[in-house]
């Protein structure tokens, strides 16, 4: 066979073989209950961060999983007419992100930060700093294009996520762990995650969350109310900086219930922590128990909502923000500035 033809035949055979193998692998994973989901990472976060600076009145959604898995940025954008970026990070409190926005003089928009008294403690301030460092130091146009090309693949293919890499699967088999954990979160390109509790053991998840929280409070007992409030003076200066530029900052204590709420209250009694700070904070503080719109929200694992409730939760948040004057009343011009 002639040299070029030899390569053509070899490549055709190879491409067909790999496509057939990939189709078989994808099918096998779907049969086992896996569904496609976008893999969240610092590049996906950075795409959202870029959006913040495309409009002067953009809305930044900061927080951890309780914002990321509950507030639909697209709905917020439709309702307000303002560019909305999901910058919450699952498992990591957002103070570093607030500090970054305070220090960036370009940002003059609205910050809606999901937070509780525990998350305001100084020891959690730097949790999201690596994401900001990535955005400031490593985020490039090339990375953005790569991420924009990878995301549609992950939207449509289970096997396009790193847990399904062959080497990782072999490693799991050797460890005796079997196939990857079938995550009950489906992530979207805009970093909104939808929890599907039908695909998880709700009692187990609930127990796990409470056990984690009990252990956390054992390992990290709360600072005294005085020390905690003193620490927040610096946070107030960040808020003031954003608001001095015409922006606005809202601290939103998301709903929790059952044992979770009881543990939080025991360790961070509302009147000594949250309410005390609300009296002196330049930010608008919203506690979910003061917002009637959240009354009907159910929390299967005591702190998160099911994906089917995202529209209702988002609407409840928008209603509350309108009631507090953060957003104009429904029907008013979308952007007050």
């Amino acid at each position: 066979m002639r040299r070029p033809l030899r390569y053509v035949v070899a490549f055709v055979v190879a491409v067909v073989a790999v496509l057939v193998a990939a189709a078989g692998f994808e099918h096998a994973m779907r049969v086992r209950g896996y569904v496609p989901s976008v893999q969240d990472d610092e590049d996906l976060w950075s795409i959202q961060a870029d959006r913040l600076f495309t409009a002067p009145d953009a809305i930044a959604l900061l927080g951890a999983s309780r914002i990321q898995f509950a507030v639909d940025p697209e709905r917020v954008e439709q309702a307000t007419g303002r560019t909305t970026a999901m910058l919450a990070v699952n498992g990591e409190y957002p103070l570093a992100a607030l500090r970054w926005l305070a220090n960036d003089t370009e940002f003059r928009g609205l910050v809606i930060m999901g937070i509780d008294a525990r998350g305001l403690d100084r020891r959690h301030w730097d949790m999201q700093q690596p994401w900001i460092d990535h955005y400031r130091k490593r985020w490039t146009l090339a990375r953005k294009i790569n991420r924009l090309l990878v995301t549609p693949l992950q939207q449509h293919l289970v096997i396009a996520r790193s847990p399904f890499a062959l080497a990782n699967l072999v490693r799991r088999q050797l460890e005796g762990w079997g196939l990857p954990f079938n995550d009950y979160v489906v992530m979207q390109p805009d970093r909104l995650g939808a929890l599907d509790y039908r695909r998880g053991d709700i009692d187990l998840i609930r127990r796990h969350r409470i056990d984690d929280l009990v252990q956390y409070y054992k390992d990290y007992p709360p600072a005294s109310p005085q020390a905690w409030n003193d620490g927040l003076r610096e946070v107030s200066t960040w808020v003031e900086r954003i608001q001095a530029r015409g922006g606005r900052v809202v601290f939103f204590r998301e709903p929790s219930g059952g044992e979770h709420l009881a543990l939080d209250e025991k360790n961070y009694p509302r009147e000594l922590y949250w309410d005390a700070y609300a009296k002196v904070s330049p930010a608008t503080l919203i506690e979910f128990r003061d917002a009637p719109a959240f009354a009907g929200i159910t929390l299967p694992d005591t702190s998160h909502i099911d994906g089917t409730e995202i529209p209702a939760f988002t609407e409840a948040l928008l209603t509350t923000l309108r009631e507090r004057g953060v957003l104009p009343p429904s029907g008013a011009p979308a952007s007050p500035r």
Binding site: A10, A14, E42, R143, R161, S162, A165
Partner: peptide, 18 residues
């Protein structure tokens, strides 16, 4: 063909991050 298949399979089945 065998070598190229192995290489392409290694690439296709190695989705990674960053």
């Amino acid at each position: 063909a065998a070598g190229i298949t192995a290489a392409l399979a290694a690439i296709a089945f190695s989705p990674g991050l960053s």
